[in-house]
Amino acid sequence: MKTPEGNPKDHSIAEFENSLTGTCLCGSIRVTIHDRDLFTRRRGHLCHCSNCRKVAGSFVAANLIIEEEKVTIEDTKGTLKTYNDHDTLSGNPVFRSFCSIDGNPIKSETPLSPGKVILKMGIFPRIPEPEMEGFALHAHPWETRLEGTIKYKLARGGEKLEE
């Protein structure tokens, strides 16, 4: 019988001092973040918008917006495919990339964030503590509120939600 894997507490932050690598479920796509400051402060964001929830297959999506030059993506079997999502609140497309074998979301890109990539953090063994939440008004009433995050009513960078 296989033993359970994936406990983030099994990985010390020191293990990722120079880089953090994750893979899709089948292993054909490998993503590496090269950022020495990844765990030195809160990073990333949770998104409660319906599109991100659908892509994540969950009640919230864990994302990290980071400069493209800090990310290496290896697509060893040519399985990385992109869905052009035009049904967005801003009217700007979001290009959502995923593994075509296992369906694992990998990244998103949008003209609203030039030079940046939005990584889907579920593929990594450990993730930094989130600094913000987008579409906080769309969080389910039963969700536990994460203390210390900046909560935007809708899109990140917009009007903040007062708690």
Rank of each mutant, 00 (worst) to 15 (best):
F124L: 08
G78I: 08
H34E: 14
C24F: 09
V94Y: 03
D75W: 06
I33K: 06
F135L: 03
P8I: 15
L154E: 11
F135H: 09
K153A: 04
K151A: 13
F16N: 05
K160S: 04
S19N: 13
T23L: 10
E68T: 10
T21R: 12
S58Q: 05
R42N: 15
F59H: 12
K153F: 01
Y152G: 03
K151M: 14
T23H: 15
F95E: 09
I13V: 15
N7R: 11
S90H: 01
N63Y: 05
E147C: 06
A56E: 06
E133D: 11
L80T: 03
T72D: 14
H11M: 05
R156G: 01
L38H: 04
M121V: 04
S90P: 00
R43S: 05
R30G: 04
E131P: 00
S97P: 02
G27V: 10
G148F: 13
E147S: 14
I65D: 03
P111K: 06
C24H: 08
I150D: 05
G91I: 00
D75C: 09
T79W: 04
F135C: 04
P4H: 12
I123Q: 06
E131F: 07
L119I: 05
E68P: 00
A14D: 15
D87N: 01
R145H: 10
T76R: 14
C26A: 11
A56W: 03
N7L: 12
H140W: 10
K116W: 01
E15I: 04
R156N: 06
K120A: 05
T110Q: 05
E68Q: 14
F59T: 06
V31F: 02
S90K: 02
G27C: 11
H34Y: 14
H140P: 00
K151E: 13
L146N: 03
E129C: 09
T144S: 11
I101A: 09
L161V: 07
K54Y: 03
